[in-house]
Structures are given as structure tokens and as C-alpha cells.
Design a protein around this nucleic acid. Structure first.
Lengths: 333, 333
DNA sequence: CTGAAAGCGCTTACAG
DNA sequence: CTGAAAGCGCTTACAG
């Protein structure tokens, strides 16, 4: 079975072909004659051979390694979201005989160890979960390394990316509130510097306009995706005497913060105020009352990113992928 | 600066030494004379050299790759817990010039692709986040591969591991309930097949015994770490007419489920029933009322696992590491 | 379609 | 302390 390392030499001897032929068969070269290919295949399985990818990498210049680069500054990875994206990435990559290298690094500045590592060319591609540093991405692309981003990069750049349809999801959420009879809608935005934050706000505005409603000055409250900011938003809204009967919170955590504050003031959800979140995190169904929210296909996003990477590795220039969302109706709206 | 690949040949020429010497200097061999070593160092930085780890791996037989193996059957990685452990692992490994390979695979049976891959010896070590398959671990260890487990393996095995002090944390939680005046305690256990589930139950029992209280037959309700099971537990308890004024739930999610059910029955928390969870997840502070819970050092656990791995790689036989927990008092107890 | 041969960029006994 | 040389296990023009 296993035991001592089996190499091409043994296979070649057993199959009575050259090592070059063994290599061809193992790499799916069609030109090898069927009978010889069969002999090689048999020898391979008889000997329980598994290829030494490191040797292959050195000889071919392709490592088969794809890095997932995560900037730990934002303790991003603590967010279950990214973990699930990674799961999707890893699964698809493995299916395609590629390995996932996990790089969690405090800073992805152009001079950080991670950057140097990436620039050293030991990985075939890099997947970024944020684009703090467009410079780095550009530099890597200039070095013909394949780069794919999960999320929407700044407009104008030609970076390949996949993202959830944040805009569409926000439209869905807002329309739902309107359908449920809300007349005075407000939104609590996420971090507006992040594309997801911006897009969700845009979607909200779109749905409002579509329904011929208007957005009063104080109806957009800028939050930052935290529970506290959701809570503060409601407090502020009330302090400002804003009249509202529906809230679209750009994520579940802020929605929960909003609910907590409403509850404290004995404003009942969904009777007095309806609310829709975004993410469909575990918390959404564990909340009281269970939260109506927008669900995204998180592992699917990871898979999409991996597929884009694979396409780029083949020399193709794939177009961005936008994954649609669905509304999960629970009890808050 | 960068550009064309710099190799030992260039460095050797520039520093006027042999390639062997370059290798020695770069690998910290003390025997090289200071002045020659200095010349090499200078050439290295002048040329902006970065080592080709793949070539080094092939020549030395050490890949510098450590796999984190995650069984995706349980969608384990969706749990932010493991993502954070991975963060800790990855950080420490990087600091030690090792890479983290992320392997999310549906099954880690002894015949799965992952197993084959690991057995092929392309990684220097493997970190398991669960030990479904003791066989695999044993086999790998027999092949002198370094294996470390995050979590507590079955007793009797000599597997190196690091884990949170689940037992101690449960004792802390239970004592707190007792100090707060609870007389009739119940616990909602986690999956009892998992070591964390068992240990947290044992800790509960220990604290009860310590206080000279007794555990009535129905006071231990077996859950499975889900929100629903927490909810069902309370429903069951009430149906069985069990008298209780304090609940230790083996994780936050079940605690939230319990709170939801209590609220529905208009039993107020913490006035009528006090409750303590375990994990200090994001949900704990976002719950209403905020959940008193046990906090563990999750990234620290990852770091500990990585440190154990590094020790094993050096040929040492480190002893298991148990990380202590603290109680975070909020409003439910 | 196939083989001999060179090469990928390091490491490491071995000899001195 | 240092160098020449062999070798790690593959891949890939090149020639036929």
C-alpha cells in the first residue's frame, strides 16, 4: 500500500514506459496511446501512488496554492460570514486539486510579510476578502498573479470579483416593509465606506423611490454594523422625534440593537414598528421576536470566488458574479 | 528590487561564497564565519531575495505546511468559534514561518481525499478540530506526522491537545447561580457525545455537589447546542412541572432559546429564573436581557494549538494545554 | 506518440 | 568552517 515513497521511476519500470510518459498520463495528456496509458494507471493504483505536489510545483512553476488573505485588523475572520465564505472557497478549490492557504495577517500593507510572500510568487493566486489596499492588488496583478476579490471593489478598477446582490437585497427588504403597510420608513446603514454598506443604502433609496415615497432628512441613520449602533440609531430617531413605522437595518446585528431599544421604550415589534435585517445570521432566528431578514448564499459566494479564480488560472477573463438574495419572513415584518 | 527571480547562484556570486554557504546563512547555521555571513546578508537584501520555499521543501523534505482539517459535515466552520481558533493558529504559525493549509472536507474518513492527502506526507503536521476518526489520527502519528487536536480527545489516547477548561467554566457558571441565590438549578447540556458537552455537565455537577445541593432526576436536560433545543428544554421542564430558578445552559444559543421560551410564558429573567450561558458569543451581548456567560480565550486556544504543533515539529513531546475561562456578568444572572 | 536529458532552486552528507 | 556534488521528484522543450 503506502509505506516507502513511490516515485515515477518505479511506475515507469512497472509499466515499461518512460518517466515522461508517466508524467503525461498523470497530467491527462491525451496523446499517450491507450494501452500504455492503461498500464501506467494500473501501476499507479497497484503501487498506491500519490503524486508529490511539491516536486511537481518546483518543476512546473505552479504551486497549486491559492491564498485567502484576511486582514485581521478588523477581526474580520471572527465574523462567521467570512468563515463560511472560506468554506465554500476551500471546497471548490479542493475539488479542482488546488489547496487553500489561509493567511490572517494584521496588516496587508504593501510592505507587510504577507505582501512579500505573495509577491514571491509561491502561490498561484490570491483571494482577498477586502480591498483595503488597491495598490497591493494592482501590483500582484501586474506580476500576472491571479487575484479575485470577494466583495465589490471600488469602481473603475478591473478586478475580478464576486459579491452578494446587496442592492437587490435591500430593495427586497424595503419593498417588503412597504407591502406590509409601512408608510414612514427609515434605514440604519452599515459602514458607508464599505461597498456593502453603500449598496444596501442605495437599494433602500431605490425601493422608496419606486413606491413614490420620499425620504425625509432624518430618515437615514448612519450606523456601523454593530449592535450598539442599531440601538443608538433608534434612540436618536426618537430623540429627533422622527416618525417611523418601519426600519430596514443593513444587518441583523443592528436590527437586534434597534429591537432592544424599541423594547426598552415599550414600542412593540412588529405592531408599532416593523423591521427587516440583512444576513440571516444565527441570531436572526434566535431573536425575540424572530427577525425577518435577507438571506444570502454565503458558501455560494465562496464557491463563486473559487470558480472565478479557477477561470483566471486558465487564462480566461471571467466577468464578475453577483449572487441573488431572498427574503426570509419571520415575525418582525 | 524584485523582478527576475533571484537565486542562490546570484547571491553566492555577489557574496563570493558557495551556494552551500548561502544556504547555511539563510538557515541560521552558526558555523559560518561572521564576515562571510555578513556578505551573504548584504547580498540578500541588496538583491531583494526571497527564498523559494517550494524548492527548499523538496530538498529538505519539510514543506512548512500545516493543515487545519475541518469536517464540514457539521458545518463546523460556520461556527464563528472555529474561525477564530483558526485565526489564532494561522497567526502563530506565520510568525514561525509556517503556512496554514485550510482543508474543509465533507468527510474525514480514513479513505477520503483529505486522508490520502495527509498521508502523502506533503504537510508537516495536521491540526484537527474534532476527532471523529481516531483511526486517522493514529495512522498519521504512526507515520511520524505531527498531530495536534483542538478539543479534548477520548481518554486513553496520547494525542497532544489544547482545550478550553470546559469543566472549570461550568463550575464558575454554576457557582455564580448559587451565589445569586438560586436554590433549584437545572442544566441544559450540549451534545453529550462531544467532550465539551460532557465536561460542562460534569462541571455543573461538581459545583452542585460542592454546595451540598442535590440534582433531582429531571434537572439535567439533554440538549444539542441548538437554539431550538434550549427552547424545547424549558418547555419540557415546565411540562414536567420541574421547579427551577436557575439554568446553566452549556452554550449561549441554548441559553437564548431558553430565554425565548421563558419570555413566551411570561416568566421573567432574571427575576424568576436566572440563567448563565457559555461562549460569550456576539449574541450574548445582543440578547435581551444581555446574557451572563462564560468567556473563553478562543484565539488563545488557536495560538496554544499552534505552539504545541511547533513544539512537536521540533521533536518535543509537549503536554496538553488547558485554557482558563472567566465569567462575564451581564443581566441574566 | 514517445524517450533522453536537462532543469526547477534549494539542502545536505561528505570530504577536507 | 567551507565547497563540490549529488539529489529531492517531478515537468517539459527537443528531437525523432
Amino acid at each position: 500500500m503506502m509505506g516507502t515513497k513511490v516515485t515515477y521511476a518505479e511506475i515507469a519500470a512497472k509499466a515499461k514506459v518512460s518517466e515522461a510518459t508517466v508524467s503525461r498520463v498523470l497530467n491527462g495528456d491525451e496523446r499517450v496511446k491507450a494501452d500504455r496509458a492503461a498500464r501506467v494507471q494500473k501501476a499507479v493504483s497497484d503501487l498506491g501512488y500519490t503524486k508529490n505536489r511539491i516536486a511537481a510545483a518546483l518543476a512546473s512553476g505552479r504551486s497549486g496554492l491559492i491564498a485567502i488573505v484576511i486582514d485581521d485588523d478588523l477581526t474580520l475572520f471572527s465574523d462567521p460570514f467570512w468563515a463560511r465564505v472560506s468554506t465554500g472557497v476551500s471546497r471548490v478549490l479542493m475539488e479542482n486539486d488546488l489547496q487553500t492557504l489561509l493567511m490572517v495577517s494584521p496588516v496587508t500593507s504593501i510592505d507587510s510579510p504577507v505582501s512579500h510572500y505573495l509577491q514571491a510568487g509561491e502561490v498561484d493566486g490570491a483571494i482577498f476578502f477586502q480591498v483595503h489596499n488597491e495598490e497591493l492588488v494592482k501590483k500582484l496583478r501586474a506580476q500576472k498573479m491571479s487575484v479575485v476579490v470577494a466583495g465589490t471593489p471600488a469602481t473603475g478598477t478591473k478586478i475580478t470579483y464576486a459579491d452578494t446582490d446587496n442592492f437587490g437585497g435591500a430593495v427586497l427588504a424595503t419593498r417588503h416593509l412597504i407591502e406590509k403597510g409601512c408608510k414612514h420608513l427609515v434605514t440604519i446603514t452599515g459602514d458607508i465606506d464599505a461597498s456593502a454598506g453603500r449598496q444596501r443604502l442605495d437599494g433602500f433609496k431605490k425601493a422608496i423611490a419606486e413606491a413614490n415615497l420620499t425620504i425625509a432628512k432624518n430618515n437615514v441613520h448612519f450606523g456601523d454594523f454593530t449592535f450598539e449602533s442599531g440601538r443608538a440609531a433608534v434612540a436618536q430617531l426618537i430623540k429627533n422625534k422622527v416618525k417611523f413605522d418601519g426600519i430596514f437595518a443593513a444587518n441583523d446585528l443592528m436590527a437586534l440593537g434597534a429591537i432592544a431599544e424599541l423594547r426598552e421604550r415599550e414600542i412593540s415589534v412588529p405592531e408599532h414598528v416593523k423591521i427587516v435585517g440583512f444576513d440571516d445570521s444565527v441570531m436572526a432566528q434566535a431573536s425575540v421576536p424572530p427577525l425577518t431578514t435577507i438571506q444570502q448564499d454565503i458558501e455560494g459566494l465562496g464557491a463563486a470566488v473559487a470558480e472565478l479564480m479557477i477561470a483566471k488560472l486558465k487564462g480566461e477573463t471571467p466577468t464578475p458574479r453577483i449572487l441573488s438574495t431572498i427574503l426570509i419572513e419571520r415575525e418582525t415584518a
